[in-house]
């Protein structure tokens, strides 16, 4: 059973956080938690609990108002509130436990009963529960919506790449069997329907390269580009993330004139770690072997080659 002294501790901490103590009381409270780490931990715990209760709309009206005017509007508290928001979004999306801890009906958190502004009626408890449920649904819905959209985009990209490969195969076979035919001839009636449709003007071919692990015996990964490919998107997996920025240079060992470079790149988080993405205009690329140097740069100006990748381009 929670003692009334614990309730008093809770109420004093909430009053401190919401600037409801006199200067003298606040100083006494501060002196206590600055000298005693347990008291400080308890204050931190109550602060986080207060934020979560606010975000879940579980605070009584007057405390809620105080929270908004005395706490939430201060920039130094923004980080804590943002962290709590993320925690709520992620923990609410967790699957329910098989045997939940039984929570008995309640007339509100007992810790707030002694608080001067607090009184909970069954009707208020019910309305709070509905509001919490609604907020949870909205937060969860938003999160799931974003996840689904990301999955749909990934699926669309995969389909696009597959379609591009089909087109490439078809073009190759057409070039072999119809060498002497006029290019403007109608396609064979048995040809796939997709070829009869005009190809979209801007295909993007994707290539994901890992340093030193996906190299084949000659030329690493291969990528085929068609005349309808506008861009080659290359995702470079970075396994050494300890640099301040990165410079990418794409070169062709067989052609010293070709040199594409981009500096000051920052990696972003992908499914399998950090990734740097560069887009090359496909029409300017010729078939052959390409080597990519990823140079790591430090704020001190120091630079070194972090990774090298290679791929073979087929047209």
């Amino acid at each position: 059973m929670q003692s009334s002294s614990a309730d008093a501790e809770y109420n004093e901490a909430v009053s401190y956080l919401l600037k409801q103590l006199t200067e003298e009381e606040a100083e006494r409270f501060e002196e206590n938690y600055l000298s005693d780490h347990d008291a400080f931990e308890h204050l931190e715990a109550i602060e986080e609990e207060l934020i979560e209760d606010y975000l879940r709309d579980q605070l009584p009206g007057e405390i809620r108002e105080l929270f908004e005017t005395q706490y939430a509007n201060r920039p130094e508290n923004r980080e804590k509130i943002d962290f709590a928001k993320r925690l709520i979004i992620c923990s609410d999306s967790l699957p329910a436990r098989k045997a939940p801890i039984h929570i008995s009906p309640t007339h509100g958190p007992a810790r707030l009963r002694g608080f001067p502004f607090y009184s909970v009626t069954p009707a208020r408890a019910a309305s709070i529960a509905i509001i919490v449920l609604l907020i949870s649904v909205i937060l969860l819905g938003g999160y799931l919506f974003r996840r689904n959209r990301l999955a749909a985009e990934t699926q669309a990209r995969i389909e696009l790449e597959e379609r591009e490969r089909e087109l490439q195969k078809h073009l190759e076979s057409q070039q072999g069997s119809n060498k002497n035919q006029d290019d403007k001839n109608q396609p064979h009636p048995q040809e796939p329907r997709s070829v009869q449709q005009p190809a979209p003007p801007t295909f993007i071919a994707s290539l994901r390269l890992k340093p030193n692990t996906e190299r084949g015996a000659s030329g690493g990964k291969a990528v085929s580009l068609t005349s309808s490919t506008a861009w080659l998107k290359i995702s470079l997996v970075v396994s050494r993330p300890d640099y301040d920025s990165y410079n990418v240079t794409v070169r062709r060992p067989s052609d010293s004139r070709f040199n594409f470079s981009k500096a000051g790149l920052k990696p972003v988080h992908g499914r399998d770690g950090l990734v740097i993405t560069v887009n090359l205009p496909a029409q300017t690329l010729e078939a052959g072997l390409y080597v990519i140097d990823l140079e790591g740069a430090r704020a001190t100006g120091e630079r070194e080659i972090a990774h090298t990748y290679q791929f073979t381009l087929q047209k």
Binding site: Q58, D92, I103, T106, A110
Partner: peptide, 24 residues
């Protein structure tokens, strides 16, 4: 699960009793 149950906050005192400890 504790993080989630406590965050929902329906009855934290009851949760503490179930866990055999104090709310603090």
């Amino acid at each position: 699960q504790l993080l989630k149950d406590y965050s929902i906050g329906a009855n934290r005192e009851h949760l503490a009793r179930v866990l055999g400890t104090t709310l603090k």
